[in-house]
């Protein structure tokens, strides 16, 4: 009896090993372990054996049955793994075929600089103010301490537009008129930057455009000093350009600030670069904005925004920024 079982096990093991199809394996499993299988028949026949024999045969029968289950299960695992890998292989993709046709759009390189500056000054406690690009003569000049006929108006090549009284409306030559609008529209203290588009009657070349961008800063509060201006521009220089940059102020002249200064930065190699103008807000300008210069004091600064974009990316021609060639814009 036992030798029959052993023989059956050998045959069954051979049969399982030769199956390479999951459905056939399932059928073989039923044949080996189902109701009509040899082992099931043998269990049924156990009752007719004498007790001594029943114990030995029963034990062996359990072992054979377990072994058969193990063989079938093992074979199933193997065949399933083969089937999975066949399926996966059928789905194989060359991902390099699919790479490279999806991209995000790009912010204009001027916008990137603009937003970087906004973020920096917002972090220093400033708000961002804006004003009209077509301005009136008062905000662009008069309120900024350029009286009519003042020769300093000649420092700006102003473009006028046909609107209202001739000479009354112009394309703002700087972002400084927004200083006046900020003061007119609110109450001090003011901590604001004013980025924006400005215009000059300049022929386009590698360093000039009739349209370009500036950023202006205005701080008006109690007890603001020239030292505060120097410290603010130094903090800006280090934050924007890096800790190995430094700044200095040199006396200069602008009608709307006094004392006035040029604002230079020093590169790590020791060379200086003139960045912009600044100074203490002139008392007449505070008055024009409805702010009492005896109670409040303030400083203002301004510089070219486009040039910072050029510097950051090593672009050597201002005109590139406004040609809108996607081969250029897509680089940033």
């Amino acid at each position: 009896m036992i030798s029959n079982l052993d023989h059956h096990l050998d045959e069954a093991a051979r049969a399982v090993g030769s199956i390479d199809d999951l459905d056939a394996l399932r059928a073989l499993g039923v044949e080996l372990l189902g109701k009509t299988s040899v082992v099931t028949e043998a269990r049924r026949a156990l009752g007719g054996l004498d007790p001594d024999q029943r114990k030995d045969v029963g034990q062996r029968l359990n072992e054979v049955r377990n072994e058969l289950e193990r063989l079938v299960s093992e074979r199933r695992t193997t065949l399933e793994a083969v089937a999975r890998s066949v399926t996966l292989e059928a789905e194989r993709l060359d991902l390099t075929e699919l790479d490279g046709n999806k991209r995000l759009g790009h912010r204009h390189v001027v916008t990137q600089t603009w937003e970087r500056l906004e973020d920096l000054f917002v972090g220093m406690g400033y708000t961002v103010a804006e004003g009209p690009e077509i301005e009136d003569e008062w905000h662009n000049f008069g309120a900024l301490n350029f009286p009519l006929g003042h020769p300093a108006r000649d420092m700006y090549d102003t473009l006028y537009v046909d609107h209202g009284v001739p000479g009354s409306t112009l394309l703002r030559t700087h972002t400084s008129p927004v200083q006046i609008r900020v003061m007119e529209d609110g109450e001090p203290p003011f901590y604001s930057i004013m980025p924006g588009r400005v215009f000059r009657s300049d022929t386009a070349d590698s360093t000039h455009m009739p349209v370009f961008h500036q950023i202006e800063g205005l701080v008006v509060d109690r007890g603001i000093t020239f030292g505060d201006l120097a410290g603010t521009l130094e903090a800006f220089t280090r934050a924007y350009f890096g800790h190995d940059f430094t700044s200095r102020l040199r006396p200069s002249y602008f009608p709307f600030t006094e004392p006035s200064a040029e604002f230079d930065i020093q590169r790590p190699d020791g060379t200086w670069l003139e960045l912009g103008g600044c100074g203490m807000v002139h008392p007449s300008v505070l008055s024009a904005g409805g702010v009492d210069p005896e109670e409040w004091s303030g400083f203002a600064f301004g510089f070219g925004l486009d040039r910072l974009a050029l510097m950051r990316h090593g672009i050597d021609d201002l005109r590139e920024l406004f040609r809108n060639d996607l081969r250029f814009l897509g680089q940033f």
């Binding site: 000054f121 917002v122 708000t127 030292g227």
Partner: peptide, 14 residues
């Protein structure tokens, strides 16, 4: 002139 930093008395924000 010694550089100093004003303490902004407002909240910076867009």
């Amino acid at each position: 002139i010694v550089p100093t930093l004003p303490r902004s008395t407002i909240t910076g924000a867009l």
